[in-house]
Amino acid sequence: MIKLAIFDLDGTLLNTIEDLAESTNYALEQCGFPKHNIKEYNYFVGNGIKKLFERALPQKERNETNINLIRKHFLYHYNTHNTNHTRPYPGINDVLIQMQQSGILIAVASNKYQEATENLIHFYFGKHINFIAILGQREGIPTKPDPFIVTEILNKANVSANNSIYIGDSNVDMETAKSSNIISVGVTWGFRTEKELLESGANYIAHNTKDIINICQKL
């Protein structure tokens, strides 16, 4: 029986790619580096903003100095513009409400930095969803696929891995679930492909949000 559902944020609950791309391109432009089209960002995100900046920079310019410079301009822009284009995926609100009504605890485990993770969750879902935990990337805490963040949530919820499910859209998420000994659900509406999810060990695939509820009811 599923008692806890842990969700990734970007590409799973929210379509954030356009705002992430615009803010990164803004930062690159401010620093004199070439910009990228939005589709390229599907493969830049997923491992935290430091890795995002590293991937966005020209290969010969990938050093700590440039990454920190990009970070400064990105945060200035993204903290102001991160809801310009971002939206919940169709049906996600209904899934969260249905889970909550059925007694399933809900949490977020993201590689997005903590401030933005909290702000976006509260902005889009805070009025009607009670999250047991909202955890993003924090200083000194290993990022996914390390199981640390998931273990934190399991301990806070006082729920075992056997009664939990992890839902995400990328290989990082499937590897996070595997390292945490949690059943994984790969969603195909996010930033990566079904092929990647399956190759990364997804236990189940959700092609639409209703599939998540159906999977939970089977377990």
Rank of each mutant, 00 (worst) to 15 (best):
N203A: 14
I2T: 12
I205F: 12
L154C: 13
F44D: 05
A27I: 02
Q59R: 12
I38W: 07
G48I: 02
G190R: 05
E115G: 11
S110F: 11
S180W: 07
P34A: 05
H81Q: 09
Y124F: 15
N82T: 02
F53W: 02
L28H: 00
M174G: 09
I215A: 14
Q98V: 02
P145M: 02
K210N: 10
D8I: 08
I49W: 09
L52N: 07
P34F: 06
A161G: 10
L135G: 01
M174T: 09
L219Y: 05
N93T: 07
I70T: 03
M1V: 14
K51G: 00
I153W: 07
E115C: 05
T83Q: 10
Y113S: 12
E54N: 01
K156S: 11
T86M: 03
S160V: 09
L105M: 12
F131P: 09
Y43K: 13
I182S: 06
I205T: 11
L197V: 11
N171K: 14
V95M: 10
S184P: 11
H85E: 01
M174I: 13
F53A: 00
S179P: 10
V150R: 12
C31N: 10
L14N: 04
G91C: 09
G190E: 02
L13S: 08
V172Q: 05
A56V: 06
L20K: 11
L20M: 13
M174Y: 06
K60R: 09
I129T: 09
V172K: 05
G11I: 07
K3R: 14
